[in-house]
Design a binder for these strands. Structure first.
Lengths: 233, 233
DNA sequence: ACGGCAATTAAGTATGACGTTTAAGTCACA
DNA sequence: TGTGACTTAAACGTCATACTTAATTGCCGT
């Protein structure tokens, strides 16, 4: 186990959490506190606090006289950034990436439309900067730099929408984009069409053309969706 | 304090959480565990576990030698059902309702489109049943019964979309609809146009007409949005 | 078979002691 | 006077242990 960063709490959490989301502890199985104490060689305090956190993510439910029960996946707080991270690291990564991309497909176009109406000049400038950054790094295997601009671009759109719920999905987008770059198409340069679309979205937002920003963003997301289906149909 | 359901842990959590989301403890302010022990008359154990949960919601961050710091609102896990509930109960309810309704506006039409493609016959029947239930209870102040059908209808659409991220937004929709009924228009009967739209969505899904289901659902959500703006512009 | 009572089990809470981190204060020295 | 290293102490973090509470199991008697 390479899990020894920070303290016992984080170590146990980052070990137990993924173990649950990956199905290593299937729904319905029970974990007793004492057993976990021994397994991780920590005190009850730590185990109990970890359990409380997992409980708050609806990964487990603790009941007296029975133990800590793993809940079915439908109950999980799938919007918790940690749950997302754990699932993306696990075996059902493809399925998870698909779910998240569909979510993007729903949210980002609407967010772009809102951004076109109310983005500040500073945010418009930021958008343009990152779009151009994507253009500049789209060739020659500068994938990490490209990824940085891509993530920043989408984060800015979500933030500029002025909706806090959208803004908090920045982490989700980052997880999706990072996952895609790191694990699937690390070899290939980005699709030039997608790069162009980003530039045009930045333009549309700057010109307060909500309908166009929405439509163009929908095309970006649709492209991302298609890409997934091509890679793992 | 009427907060005494279940145990000390829940009691303290349900008291401290809202106190934070309502701004009673503004971002940047610090809470020391010892102080909290006395304030709630419970042991360190309980306080520490509550803090860990609040920390997992990104409401607070605990640091040695300084205490538990309240984080700025941008950091909060606004998708956590409890955070949503606490904020809806607090003073920025209108703002929160608006955010959530915009989220619905983005997600539900797409979910309805997906549902039209892959809803099971059982789910179609469920949709029809609840749509008709809405019709039957839409007049004569049967608001509670109507609300139940409305929530169930939207939950079914989200579930039938086959996307786990969408499915988990059922709680959000319930919170929004409940909030609207209970606190804003409790007196008035539902808008007949909205009722009709629900029936037509059920039809479209049953006939696998994705585009129509999407468009009709968009109209429902737009109507909900307009209603909000009318009531608190 | 059934219903109630008791025993058992595992989580929940309380408390004291100690370790660890780190902000902040202090003192010496240039 | 200012800077740097050193010391201190405040608050969280962890451990160990005793005790409390609730729920399941199962026994027993009817």
């Amino acid at each position: 186990m390479e899990n020894q960063g920070q303290g016992p709490h984080a170590r146990v959490l980052e070990s137990l959490g993924p173990a649950i989301t990956s199905g290593e502890h299937p729904p319905g199985s029970v974990l007793r506190t004492e057993e976990l104490e021994q397994r991780f060689e920590v005190s009850r305090t730590v185990i109990r606090e970890v359990i409380r956190v997992l409980e708050s993510m609806h990964l487990v439910a603790s009941r007296r006289r029975v133990g800590v029960t793993v809940l079915p996946a439908e109950e999980w707080n799938v919007y918790d950034p940690r749950v997302i991270r754990w699932r993306l690291a696990g075996s059902d990564r493809p399925r998870q990436l698909r779910s998240l991309t569909v979510l993007r497909l729903a949210v980002e176009p609407v967010a772009a439309g809102l951004a076109a109406r109310q983005a500040t000049p500073a945010q418009c400038a930021e958008l343009t900067e990152h779009a151009l950054g994507m253009v500049a790094t789209s060739r020659g295997g500068q994938l990490e730099a490209y990824l940085g601009h891509d993530v920043a671009f989408h984060r800015t759109v979500l933030r500029a929408s002025g909706n806090e719920m959208f803004a908090r999905l920045g982490d989700v987008v980052e997880a999706v984009l990072t996952g895609r770059t790191r694990h699937q198409v690390m070899f290939a340069d980005p699709d030039p069409a997608a790069v162009t679309l980003h530039v045009r979205v930045a333009e549309a937002v700057r010109e307060h053309d909500a309908a166009r920003a929405e439509e163009l963003t929908r095309r970006i997301a649709t492209g991302a969706m298609a890409e997934l289906d091509i890679l793992a149909p």
